[in-house]
Structures are given as C-alpha cells and as structure tokens.
Design a protein around this nucleic acid. Structure first.
Length: 150
DNA sequence: GCCAACGTTGGC
DNA sequence: GCCAACGTTGGC
C-alpha cells in the first residue's frame, strides 16, 4: 500500500464536496507524469492526503482512498469541458483517472506549516517549482503528518 | 495581479 | 533533435 498527496482546487472539488459525494473520479489531470502515477502505481486501497490548492488557504484538508483503478477520464471527450482534448478518442483515450472515496476531513494543515518541519523537507510538494498534482508520500512522511492532523 | 517555474508546442 | 515562445500552475 502506497501513500500520495493529491491536489484539488476547492472551487472545483473540495474536501466537503468529497464528503457529500462519497466518491469522485479524479478527473482533469492533464500531465503525463501524474497520469502515469495513476495508471502504473496507484492501487485500490492506497491512501492520499487531499490537498487544497489555488485558494486562500492552501494545505492538507483531509484524507481519501483510491477505490477504483485508472480508467478513461470522461471529461476529455466533452467539447464543453475545460478538460476537453480533441486528440483523445474512445478507442485511444489519453487521459485517465482513478476514483477516490472520502475517508475523513481533518483540520486544515497549511502549506506554511508543512514547510516548518525539517522531517518533511524531502516532500515533492515542497520542492521549488513543484507543480505536479499527484505526488508520492513516504510512509514516514505519512505517519508524521497524520500525527499532526488531530 | 504578479511572477517564478515548468511542460508543451511547433518551426526549423 | 533543438529551442524559443507560449500557456499553465500555484503561492503570495
């Protein structure tokens, strides 16, 4: 079982939205590295920190769990979607998503606080210029952060 | 709104 | 295959 950090803009899907909907497809990933994590490395049962980005209070907002393996992201086929990709076809989808289910909402653990812990300095999300929306989290980082989410 | 960093595109 | 230009991400 592996651990992850998954970014979402709360305007689009917040931890409260996930709590209300129970499960959501992780649609809208348009980066090959993040797609490949979903396709090749994420497994049902993996857990992830649900991170709010692009908002007033960026940080970890909760925990979710992968509940379906990677499948075609429907938004790539929808001309009305901002995630539409004209080069994608049903036979050869380009973009995939896993489904995640709600596990718990936590206190908001701000990005600034993550940066304060030397134990977390190696986290990919904290590296300069990092933009990847899905990043792996080590077991040690997972345990350290979970302890501080109470 | 600004800006640094990064990924993608497309001409050559 | 190179690389400049462009668009996007995301914190501040």
């Amino acid at each position: 079982m592996a651990y992850w950090l998954m970014k979402s803009e709360p305007d689009e899907v917040s931890i409260d939205d996930l709590a209300a909907r129970k499960t959501v497809p992780w649609f809208g990933v348009r980066n090959y590295q993040a797609r490949n994590f979903m396709r090749d490395a994420m497994r049902v049962g993996d857990r992830a920190f649900f991170y709010h980005s692009g908002c007033a209070e960026p940080g970890i907002a909760g925990i979710c769990e992968v509940c379906a393996p990677a499948h075609a992201d429907d938004t790539q086929f929808d001309p009305d979607s901002p995630y539409y990709d004209p080069k994608a076809t049903a036979e050869q989808p380009r973009w995939l998503c896993v489904d995640v289910k709600f596990v718990q909402k936590t206190r908001l653990l701000p990005l600034a606080e993550l940066r304060n812990h030397p134990e977390l300095a190696g986290m990919q999300i904290l590296q300069r210029g990092n933009r990847l929306s899905i990043t792996p989290v080590s077991a040690a980082e997972w345990a350290f952060i979970k302890e501080r989410l109470r």
